[in-house]
Design a binder for these strands. Structure first.
Length: 527
DNA sequence: TTCCGACAGTGGGGTCGCAAT
DNA sequence: ATTGCGACCCCACTATCGGAA
């Protein structure tokens, strides 16, 4: 099969807005793909590479060679090139990758080049990723979308399901079962503004502490333990203490869902950054483990005694969890029946006081709906706000092209100058985007084509989750998950929050930003 | 007809590891 | 030794479509 029709359909899909139309366009192409093409075509049209990451980024894609005049590239030639790219290593790897990429792009027509660049950089922007591909796959094969989605969740990815489904038809979906040792897409939570609201939405529910660490899925099959991240990457060899905990439990065929965190001597959680650094360390794991020992804490169970528990309501899964996992290894929780708000609120406060991130409110009757951000779990975290000053803004991409999007945020110093605390592009409606583009252009003092620097006069109210240590910004801290709430056109820059009040609000002392370096873990840490 | 769930898009900061400088 | 880049961790929010109410 040639790449050309694929690239063409991708462009057509991007050109229509109706999801139903996208689905039938994709389905039409799936039908024409031969059995050998399927494992490649399906992921490509869902915007993914079967090889995963191949070590080629935006930089290697600059200045593509002139396009070919005629379409001769086959999908298999493209796939072979990606396989070769993924295998390149050692000195000179960068140059070799560049050479392979140039060779591939040189053999591609203009439309194919656009498609390949999008595919490699993960910016297909056709408005159709896995979920739409699942629908198209269902349409092509005559299977029920739900059944396809469930198989994808259990297989961990689309490709193996697509291959079997198109080769043998809907009945093969029954072959996709939860297997201990093979990762499953994890269930995710939606956000809610407050505990009372979340409890009201869910009715009978559990309120569990939300720990700020790394999500882990722990499989044990006899003496074999495997640990996976939220994106299903295996990290078993980096977490020996988690393996030890799994081997210490009184069961030998289970799958647990939980979070790893690090605790200090007083039993309080250490900052997320320390946990992330530890989990990311592949080199000398034993010494990393001595410096930052990790504690797994579990909140769900997907299989026990080799038996699949996914479809059981949470209440029953928790019973199974409690049978296998002793108290300190489980997340703290309470059960709230029939909207008794105060208990949940008190639990939320107590959880924050213990230094944790917030709570997750979970419907007791909900099954484990993996891979979807189902409404069965609602997370609640405290929100802080600040009035900051816009120092600059970056030109947006994609649907934000031509609009000033990413804002550089500054806090006021006592002397009237400003310290940059981070950036945000979140929380902006199209109308606000439009308005800020006009207003910031009026305030512009410089435009290098990427960033527009402005006179620091515009005040914006920012919500954020807490401070974290930063080596990038002059105050030594930056805002975590900053987003725009609204512009404060009623405020002048001289009325914006100062860096002193920002630091003081998070127990980092007032005064100058240079004292913000709190020497590792001795400080109280970000919330 | 209106409401709302699910999805895609638009990017944020940090950290590690590897290759290039 | 330092710097740049890619891969992955954490993540919020809005616009849109299309089925449910």
């Amino acid at each position: 099969m040639l790449l050309a029709p694929l690239a063409h359909v991708s462009r057509e899909v991007a050109g229509v807005s109706a999801r139903s139309r996208k689905i039938s366009l994709l389905a039409g192409l799936f039908r024409t793909a031969g059995p050998d093409d399927v494992p490649v075509v399906i992921p490509y049209l869902a915007g993914r590479l079967p090889q995963g990451r191949i070590g080629v980024g935006w930089n290697a894609l600059k200045d593509p060679p002139p396009p070919a005049g005629r379409a001769t590239l086959t999908v298999h030639r493209v796939d072979d090139t990606f396989t070769a790219l993924a295998a390149v290593a050692g000195p000179g790897a960068q140059g070799e990758r560049r050479r392979l990429v140039r060779e591939l792009l040189g053999a591609a027509t203009e439309e194919e080049q656009r498609f390949l660049v999008g595919l490699i950089s993960g910016e297909i922007r056709q408005g159709a990723l896995d979920a739409v591909a699942v629908e198209a796959l269902a349409e092509t094969s005559g299977a029920r979308p739900d059944a396809v989605r469930r198989a994808v969740m259990l297989a961990g990815s689309l490709a193996p399901v697509a291959r079997r489904l198109l080769a043998a038809g809907p009945p093969v979906l029954d072959e996709f079962l939860l297997t201990v040792g093979r990762p499953v897409l994890p269930m995710l939570a939606q956000s809610a503004a407050g505990v009372a609201e979340a409890v009201e939405r869910l009715g009978e529910c559990a309120v569990e502490e939300k720990l700020d660490g790394i999500r882990v899925q722990v499989h044990r099959d006899g003496a074999a333990v495997r640990i996976f991240t939220r994106t299903l990457d295996e990290i078993t060899d980096r977490l020996p203490e988690v393996t030890a905990v799994a081997l210490g439990l009184a069961g030998d065929g289970f799958v647990l869902d939980g979070e790893v965190i690090a605790l200090d001597a007083a039993g309080r959680p250490r900052p997320f950054q320390e946990v992330a650094g530890r989990v990311g360390s592949r080199g000398d794991v034993p010494s990393a483990a001595r410096a930052v020992p990790l504690s797994p804490v579990f909140f769900d169970i997907l299989a026990a005694d080799g038996e699949e528990l996914l479809d059981l309501p949470l209440a029953d899964r928790h019973t199974a969890l409690a049978r296998l996992v002793p108290e300190p290894l489980r997340v703290r929780r309470i059960v709230v029946a029939g909207g008794s708000g105060p208990d949940a609120e008190a639990f939320f406060r107590a959880t924050l006081d213990r230094g944790h991130e917030g709570v997750v409110v979970k419907a007791l009757d909900a099954p484990y709906s993996a891979g979807r951000r189902g409404a069965g779990w609602l997370k609640v975290k405290p929100v802080h706000t600040l009035d900051l000053v816009v120092l600059a803004a970056e030109w947006g991409h994609g649907r934000r092209t031509g609009r000033l999007s990413n804002l550089h945020l500054g806090a006021r110093r006592e002397d009237g100058s400003f310290v940059m605390l981070g950036k945000t592009f979140k929380g902006l409606t199209d109308a606000t985007l439009e308005w800020q583009t006009g207003r910031l252009r009026e305030l512009a003092v410089r435009d290098d084509g990427f960033t527009v620097t402005v006179r620091p006069e515009l005040v914006v109210e920012i919500a954020y989750d807490g401070l974290q240590r930063s080596s990038r910004y002059p105050a030594g801290v930056t805002l975590r998950f900053a987003r725009v709430l609204r512009y404060r056109t009623d405020k002048r820059a001289a009325e914006a929050d100062t860096i002193g009040t920002v630091l003081a609000a998070h127990g980092r002392g007032g005064g100058s930003e240079d004292s913000g370096q709190d020497g590792g873990s001795s400080g109280p840490g970000a919330e």
